[in-house]
Design a protein around this nucleic acid. Structure first.
Length: 577
DNA sequence: GCCGTTTTCGGCCCGACTGTTTTCAGTCG
C-alpha cells in the first residue's frame, strides 16, 4: 500500500531542496534533492515496486539517505526530517521564490531580520522603505523587488508555446535588423519544443565592435515593459506580454558553443560538461578547451561539439538529460520523426458537431497539405455541449463522406467518431452504430473527479472495447489551467500495448497530451502513437506541428506513428478497404 | 546529498550581471 505517488514524493523532495537552500546548506546537497525530485517524477516504473524491491537505491543519484527518505514517504506518507525542516519556516515563504533577484540567501535575510514571511508582507516592507538599510540590500534592490512583485501580480510566469514562439519571432526579426549580425538563432526551451515556455532566449554572433549597437537595438525593441539587465554580451528584458527575453552576443567562432549552452536544458548542459571533463576538456559557452594546455578545439557548427566528444549529434528536443547522452555515446539515438513524414491525420471536427468548417472545407484543407487521408471524428451523442452526433446525423455524415470521396481523388476522408468514455468505461453508442465507423477515438469529457483507481479502470475498459482505435487526450489536461484527471498512465499505456490500441498525442498547444515523458515509455512498450490535431477548423490542422515537437521529445521515429503510414497502410491497419 | 578503473574522501559545470561593496556575494541561466 502506497501512501504517496511519484508526483507527491517528487514535490516533497523539491520542497526539501528549497528549505535546505534557505538554511544555507551545501549547494551540492540541495542539488541532490532537486535531482532526485526530477528523477522520481520522470520514473516510468512503479515507485511502490521500486521501494518494495529495494531497487530505489540502485537508481543513479539516489543513494542511501535519499532511498531511505523516499521509502519512508511511500510507505508511511510522512517524513520527520521534512516536517522538522518545514517547521522552521512558515509555508508562505515559498511565495518569495521566483521574484527576480531574490534567492535563498536574501529571502533568509528578510525572514531573519524583518520577519517577512509572505509576498504581501514583502511588498508592505518595501513600501515602508525598510529594505534599504539591510546589509546586502539597498534602494535599487528594493525597487527591483517591488517591480518584480508588480509583474508577478500582472502576468503568469509560463506561456503556451505558440504565444512565446510568435513573440520570439518578432523580437528575433527586430534584432536581426541590427548591423553586423553574422549568425542568430532562437534557442532555449523554444528550440527544445517544450510544451510550456518560461522565457525566450536569443543568441547572436557579431564582431565586438557591433555588439554594443545590437544590445542597444535589443533593449529599445517595441513593447518592452522593463529592461532587467543590460550588459556588453548579455541583456534581459520583459515584454508587455510578461515574457522574459534574454539575449547573448558572442564572437562567431563561439556561436556553436553558445548555441548549445543557450539551448539547454540546464541538466543536459551540466551532464555534457561532466562528459567533457571526463575526457580532459572544459566545456563552456565560449568553447571546448583541452585542459592540459587550454587549447581551443575549433567547431564551426553545433554538431561538431558532439563529434569531438565522441557523441552522435543530439537534436535539441532530446536535450533533457533523460538518457540522450548515454544513447549518443552508444550511437543508438533515434532517427526522429519530421513533420513531412505525416501523410494524414485523425481526430478532426466539422460543422456536424462543434467544428467551424464543413466536411468539404476540411477535406480541401487536407488536400492542400498534400495529405492522403483525413480522419473526421466529431463528438458523440452524450457530448451535448458540443452538438454531439445523433444516429441520424451519423447516417447523414456517412452519405456526405461517401459522396465527397467519390469526387475528390487525392485525399480520402475516413469516417470516425470521438466517442465519449462514459463513467463506467463504456462507449457512447450501441455496437451496431459503432460498427459503422472507420475508426473510433475514445475520450473522457465528463466526470473528471474520479479517484485514480476508478479513472484508470474506466479508461482501460474503453481501451479494451473492440471498436476502440485510438485513446484521445489521455489525461485531459489543459496546460496552465487544468491538471489532468487522476490516472495511472503506466497502466493505461500497458493496456494499450496489450490490446494493440493506439494512443493520441493531441497536438492542440493547450493540451499536448500524451505528455512527451510518457511518449517515450509508450514507444518502449511498442504502443502505436497517433499525432492528431483535434482541429476545430481548417487552420487547426497545422497544430500537428506541435504534436511533432512532442513526438520528437518522446524519441519517436516515423515508424512509431500511425499517421506516417500511406493510405493503403492505414486502411490495412483499420481493417477496411 | 551522491559518487568512484584516480573508490570511502574530496570532488561535484561554469560564467555574466547587479548592486552592494571597495573586492565580492548573490542570483541567474
Amino acid at each position: 500500500m502506497a501512501f504517496l505517488n511519484k508526483k507527491e514524493v517528487a514535490s516533497i523532495l523539491e520542497d526539501i531542496g528549497i528549505l535546505l537552500e534557505l538554511k544555507g546548506e551545501n549547494p551540492f546537497k540541495t542539488r541532490a534533492y532537486f535531482n532526485a525530485a526530477r528523477t522520481i517524477s520522470g520514473l516510468t516504473s512503479d515507485l511502490t515496486d521500486l521501494v518494495e524491491s529495494g531497487g530505489i537505491g540502485n537508481i543513479k543519484g539516489i543513494g542511501k539517505a535519499l532511498a531511505e527518505k523516499i521509502t519512508t514517504l511511500v510507505t508511511t506518507g510522512k517524513l520527520e526530517y521534512y516536517e522538522n525542516l518545514k517547521s522552521e519556516f512558515p509555508p508562505t515563504i515559498f511565495e518569495l521564490f521566483g521574484i527576480p533577484g531574490l534567492g535563498p540567501k536574501k529571502i533568509k535575510k528578510l525572514f531573519d531580520t524583518l520577519g517577512i514571511t509572505s509576498l504581501t508582507e514583502l511588498e508592505y516592507a518595501c513600501n515602508e522603505n525598510r529594505l534599504v538599510d539591510l546589509e546586502g540590500f539597498g534602494a535599487k534592490t528594493q525597487d527591483n523587488i517591488l517591480k518584480g512583485i508588480s509583474i508577478r501580480k500582472k502576468f503568469s510566469e509560463k506561456f503556451h508555446f505558440p504565444l512565446a514562439r510568435n513573440a520570439a519571432e518578432d523580437i528575433h526579426k527586430h534584432v536581426n535588423r541590427s548591423k553586423g549580425i553574422k549568425r542568430s538563432e532562437i534557442a532555449g526551451s523554444l528550440r527544445r519544443k517544450k510544451e510550456i515556455i518560461g522565457d525566450i532566449d536569443i543568441l547572436v554572433s557579431a564582431a565586438k565592435k557591433d555588439a554594443e549597437n545590437i544590445m542597444k537595438n535589443f533593449v529599445t525593441a517595441p513593447d518592452i515593459e522593463q529592461v532587467v539587465a543590460e550588459g556588453k554580451t548579455k541583456s534581459s528584458i520583459i515584454l508587455k506580454t510578461g515574457i522574459n527575453v534574454d539575449i547573448r552576443v558572442v564572437a562567431d567562432k563561439e556561436f556553436p558553443f553558445a548555441l548549445h549552452y543557450f539551448t539547454g536544458s540546464k541538466e543536459h548542459n551540466v551532464h555534457m560538461r561532466r562528459i567533457a571533463n571526463e575526457q580532459g576538456y572544459k566545456l563552456n559557452e565560449y568553447g571546448l578547451f583541452r585542459e592540459s594546455d587550454n587549447a581551443r578545439v575549433s567547431c564551426s557548427e553545433e554538431k561538431d561539439i558532439f563529434v569531438k566528444l565522441g557523441l552522435e549529434y543530439i537534436p535539441p528536443e532530446l536535450r533533457e538529460d533523460t538518457g540522450e547522452i548515454a544513447a549518443a555515446e552508444k550511437g543508438t539515438l533515434p532517427n526522429l520523426i519530421e513533420e513531412t513524414d505525416l501523410r494524414g491525420t485523425f481526430h478532426c471536427h466539422t460543422t456536424y458537431s462543434d467544428g467551424a468548417n464543413s466536411l468539404e472545407e476540411m477535406l480541401q484543407a487536407a488536400q492542400s497539405r498534400k495529405w492522403e487521408y483525413l480522419g473526421i471524428a466529431d463528438h458523440s451523442q452524450s457530448a451535448q455541449y458540443a452538438r454531439g452526433l445523433s444516429k441520424a446525423d451519423i447516417t447523414r455524415q456517412r452519405k456526405e463522406i461517401d459522396a465527397l470521396n467519390k469526387n475528390y481523388g487525392s485525399c480520402r476522408l475516413l469516417h470516425g467518431i470521438e466517442s465519449d468514455i462514459l463513467a463506467d468505461g463504456s462507449l457512447d453508442y450501441d455496437e451496431n452504430t459503432l460498427e459503422i465507423f472507420d475508426f473510433v477515438v475514445v475520450s473522457v469529457h465528463s466526470r473528471f473527479k474520479m479517484t485514480e483507481a476508478e479513472m484508470t479502470k474506466r479508461i482501460i475498459r474503453a481501451i479494451k472495447n473492440k471498436y476502440t482505435t485510438i485513446l484521445g487526450h489521455p489525461t485531459g489536461r489543459l496546460l496552465l489551467s487544468r491538471d489532468g484527471y487522476n490516472i495511472d498512465l503506466v497502466q493505461v499505456i500497458d493496456a494499450a500495448a496489450d490490446y494493440g490500441k493506439a494512443i493520441e498525442i493531441n497536438s492542440h498547444p493547450y493540451r499536448l497530451d500524451l505528455d512527451w515523458k510518457m511518449v517515450k515509455y509508450a514507444k518502449e512498450k511498442g504502443v502505436t502513437i497517433c499525432i492528431n490535431p483535434d482541429a476545430h477548423n481548417t487552420d487547426g490542422l497545422d497544430d500537428v506541428r506541435y504534436g511533432i515537437g512532442i513526438a520528437r521529445k518522446g524519441w519517436l521515429e516515423a515508424g512509431d506513428v500511425l499517421n506516417t503510414k500511406s493510405l493503403t497502410g492505414v486502411l490495412q491497419y483499420l481493417g477496411i478497404s
